[in-house]
Design a protein around this nucleic acid. Structure first.
Lengths: 211, 211
DNA sequence: TAATTAAGCGAACGTTCGTGCTGAAAAGAG
DNA sequence: CTCTTTTCAGCACGAACGTTCGCTTAATTA
């Protein structure tokens, strides 16, 4: 009945490498031939794991989402809800970008810019991931507000927009100009913005560069 | 001695279209064959204008910079230095993105994300343009500070970072989720941030959505 | 007007792309 | 151990890529 089972470890190696390449060269720049040669397997063998390039791209987005969950989301959710968790989320994101978990910076930043202006299933998957991330940040902010740690008139969607703007721009500036000051700027911006919205500004954790 | 001169109008048509395509599909996704077919000229004829794909990409970056100058920078510089000019710069940028001067949103946002993680002359050109833009925003902010319209302790580089973050994120969110609220959010963020740094918050022009 | 120089086209180059086909090695089932 | 089923490498395909080569045609100069 059953023949040779597909090697799950090889599959993971393929996708992890695919995500690394895509973060730097894009999901279109990712080619099956180069990827196969890189990993020492045959082009058709690798192809068999997915059946089409689009399916490979979709699978790559999925593993990148898992990495993102592991590296950014879960550590932040370890903190209790409130302002502290908002900070951990932002600071953890900057750390994830700065540590170059993906060599080309944040995977989703790269592929979002690549696919945001064309139709298709890959774009839909990327957009869904972005929406989920945005909802998480918004909910985390709203939790802090409900707990009374942010002023009543704080609009969660608005604040989430501003915070993620700082994060993504730090990623972009750091990559383009190789400027580590970008992360410092982003942390300063996040802290200042959260202090402005906090009911108790002194409650915000983290070091203060304006010391 | 001299033969037929190259048609400058055709060259401009080529590059303007190239910039349009690149804003949506990237400068690598831009293919000479498709571009030539699009414009009704032969592949080799078009190729002759530039001599290599890289040269075509560099020329495309240059005309995109001219468009950017025309659509964003010059209108803002028409306003006198100060807080008003800072606002005009941000508001004009959002307008340029929202009007889809390039169909794929801001050209430089797209190609920056595409080239920020690989070496080469195209990347260098894009990085130089980004640096110039950043310097312009920083100088415009600093002018306002020197004029006493922003508080003395305002750090121009930091404020410029935050303002451009709002702009670029509005562009990205709008493209990915087709969400016009992104521009409203960005304008709100810019206005709030400038009010916080202004010596006279009431001096800030523009309508207030919180009315 | 005649000579000269370069523009722009059509065709083809070699390479790489994603994708099938074929055959041999490999692993579970009986 | 045999049979069956599936993986995987090797090869080839058509299409598209950037690029080059002649050839024709048009504009400029003498």
């Amino acid at each position: 009945m059953a023949g040779r089972p597909r090697d799950e470890r090889t599959r993971n190696r393929i996708l992890r490498r695919a995500a690394d390449i895509a973060s730097a060269e894009g999901l279109e720049g990712l080619s099956i031939g180069r990827l196969a040669a890189d990993l020492g397997v045959s082009k058709s063998g690798l192809f068999g794991y997915f059946g089409s390039k689009e399916e490979l791209q979709l699978a790559t987005v999925r593993v990148a989402a898992e990495v993102y969950l592991q590296e950014v989301v879960r550590p932040a959710l370890a903190a209790p809800p409130g302002l502290g968790r908002v900070w951990r989320l932002c600071d953890g994101w900057l750390d994830y970008s700065e540590r170059r978990v993906f060599p080309g910076g944040c995977f989703f930043f790269a592929v979002t810019a690549e696919f945001d202006a064309r139709p298709g299933r890959v774009r839909d998957a990327v957009a869904a991931a972005g929406l989920e991330w945005n909802r998480l940040v918004t909910r985390t902010v709203d939790d802090a507000r409900r707990l009374g740690e942010l002023t009543e008139d704080t609009e969660p969607g608005q604040l989430a927009f501003e915070l993620t703007a700082f994060l993504e721009t730090a990623n972009a500036v750091s990559l383009l100009h190789d400027d580590p000051a970008a992360y410092r700027r982003a942390r300063t911006a996040v802290r200042t913005r959260l202090r402005a919205a906090a009911t108790d500004p002194a409650a915000l954790p983290g070091p203060d560069p304006a010391a």
